[in-house]
Amino acid sequence: MFYSIRYFLLFMFVTFVVAGCGINRDDNEIIDYNAELAKGWQEYRSGNYKSAILAFEKVISDDVPANIIGDSYNGLGWAYMNISQSVNINRANLDIAIAKFQKSIEKDKDNYDAMVGLAVAIFIRQNSTDDYQKALEMIDLAINKDSIYLYRHDYKSRADLYALKAQCYYRLGEFDSAESEANNALSIDNNNKTALSIKTLLY
């Protein structure tokens, strides 16, 4: 009897530990969502966007914490956005990217990387001047945040965010603001190519 109880408790402990780091999707598969999320970002940084999408998709489940789901949607947004620009701009994939970023923010309002991604995506979309204004709004929400989500991949510092703001203002015809934001970028990184390009266009 003692051995039966001990093994039962051991089984329950192992089950608890496994449940704490993974999701049982069916009788045969247990998904370690932290590992899949990390794999998704690793594939993304390697430029394997389709593999990244598969990994991020595995994480999404009602049983997963909101911040993990949010970052999975965020990763999907960045992956689809990059796929959308692989040859020419693919509007369908860009729209998917925008929807994924919006879903990420809905799940985790502290995922400022998703806000930056949404800003980049709607800047690329360029449907109207409203897109540039919305992009500026998203960047302003993220730019001064000290977040674990920021500066992990495509953009490396606040200089890149200021440079994106400069691009938005330039497209809006607000050239003084464009110059100011370009200067902000260059004060952090005096070799920021986007900011230097904006300065060249202004003179």
Rank of each mutant, 00 (worst) to 15 (best):
D154L: 06
D95V: 07
D140F: 03
I69M: 06
K199V: 11
D71S: 15
I23G: 01
F56H: 09
N190E: 15
Y112K: 06
P65E: 04
L76C: 08
N111Q: 09
A119N: 08
N28A: 03
I60W: 01
G40E: 03
F56S: 03
S197P: 00
S180C: 05
I60E: 13
R152C: 03
K165C: 04
G77S: 07
L10E: 09
A92T: 14
K156F: 08
Y151S: 03
S157H: 08
K134E: 13
I60L: 13
A114K: 05
S4C: 04
A142R: 04
T194R: 03
T15V: 13
I188T: 09
L54E: 15
Y155W: 15
Q126H: 14
A159T: 04
A79C: 05
Y80R: 09
I98M: 09
M81S: 10
N48T: 09
I139D: 00
S104T: 02
N82V: 00
Q126F: 09
V14Q: 06
I89L: 14
D108Q: 04
A135Y: 08
G117V: 02
E106M: 08
L150N: 03
N28F: 04
Y149G: 11
Y162I: 06
E181F: 15
E29T: 15
Y44M: 04
Y7S: 07
D160E: 06
I143N: 10
N191L: 06
L10C: 07
N191M: 08
N48S: 15
F123Y: 15
L136V: 07
Q126M: 10
F56W: 10
V17E: 05
A79R: 02
G22N: 06
D154N: 07
A119Y: 08
Q167E: 15
I143R: 12
K100G: 00
Y132M: 15
Y3R: 10
R91S: 13
D130S: 14
L54I: 09
I83E: 15
N111L: 13
E106Y: 01
H153N: 07
Y155V: 02
L37Q: 10
N191R: 06
K58Y: 04
R171N: 15
Y33T: 07
D110H: 11
A66H: 11
A163G: 01
V116D: 06
A97Q: 11
G75M: 06
K199G: 02
S157R: 00
H153Q: 06
E43Q: 11
E43W: 01
